[in-house]
């Protein structure tokens, strides 16, 4: 319990919140990294998954990519990228690694969502004279939306976790508070940083949980 009180003391000390190594700056870095990389990953993965799912092709690739993503250690990829020329562009390795690990869950879930749309509904859409594009956007995508959003949530949580590990390889974000704590052998700082990261991750998960519940109703209600 003593460490927890000390960690609380660390967190409530205003000196730890300001400056380049302060909580406020690290939090902003973490948020920007997560949001920017989530948008980039969605722009890369979702069009590919939706088109592949619509055409019913490349299923093995989309599903296996997730398994590959799980077997490759995030930390190893971060360090490998750091040692390549990308390592010279500051946050370059972090951004590339974040996108690499966010794409598989997005791709797999969106693809599976598209394939799980009732084939009879798609055929009915065809029978009504819809073109492939109309069927994709007006029938299949709205029905696949819950699965697509699940993929976005998993990717977002994965991004927060990866951005934390990036601190081990010198990247910015809340993880830096933890690694700095280890370097200073300051257990209260390590615990305080870990609490911040955990709360941040749970908040992201919570926000997407709400979006997942509300968005499909909105999408259907507006029509």
């Amino acid at each position: 319990m003593n460490t927890l009180t000390e960690a609380w003391g660390w967190l409530t000390d205003p000196a730890h919140w300001s400056g380049d190594d302060g909580v406020r700056h690290r939090l902003a870095q973490h948020l920007v990294l997560t949001v920017v990389c989530l948008v980039v990953s969605c722009l890369i993965a979702l069009p590919v998954a939706l088109v592949l799912g619509h055409l019913g092709k490349g299923g093995a690739l989309a599903v296996n990519l997730s398994n590959v993503g799980r077997a490759v250690p995030t930390f190893a990829v971060l360090v490998l990228l750091l040692l390549t020329p990308i390592g010279r562009w500051g946050e370059g390795p972090t951004v590339v690694a974040l996108v690499l690990f966010a794409v598989p869950p997005l791709l797999t879930n969106a693809y599976v969502g598209m394939r799980e749309v009732d084939r009879d509904v798609v055929r009915a859409a065809r029978g009504m004279g819809m073109t492939g594009r109309q069927s994709l956007f007006q029938v299949e995508l709205p029905l696949a939306l819950p699965m697509v959003l699940t993929g976005v949530r998993i990717a977002a949580v994965q991004l927060v976790a990866t951005a934390t590990i990036a601190a081990l390889a010198g990247g910015g974000g809340l993880g830096r508070i933890i690694t700095a704590g280890f370097n200073l052998a300051s257990t209260p700082q390590v615990v305080a940083g870990a609490v911040l990261v955990a709360v941040f991750a749970l908040l992201v998960e919570g926000v997407f949980e709400v979006v997942e519940r509300v968005a499909p109703h909105r999408a259907r209600g507006s029509r």
């Binding site: 933890i178 390590v190 870990a194 990261v197 955990a198 991750a201 998960e205």
Partner: peptide, 18 residues
């Protein structure tokens, strides 16, 4: 278990440090 899985690994190890 969902809450546990959401906590990033680095933070999990750090929380167990004390």
């Amino acid at each position: 278990t969902t809450v546990l899985y959401t906590v990033p690994s680095l933070a999990m190890f750090s929380l167990l440090l004390p």
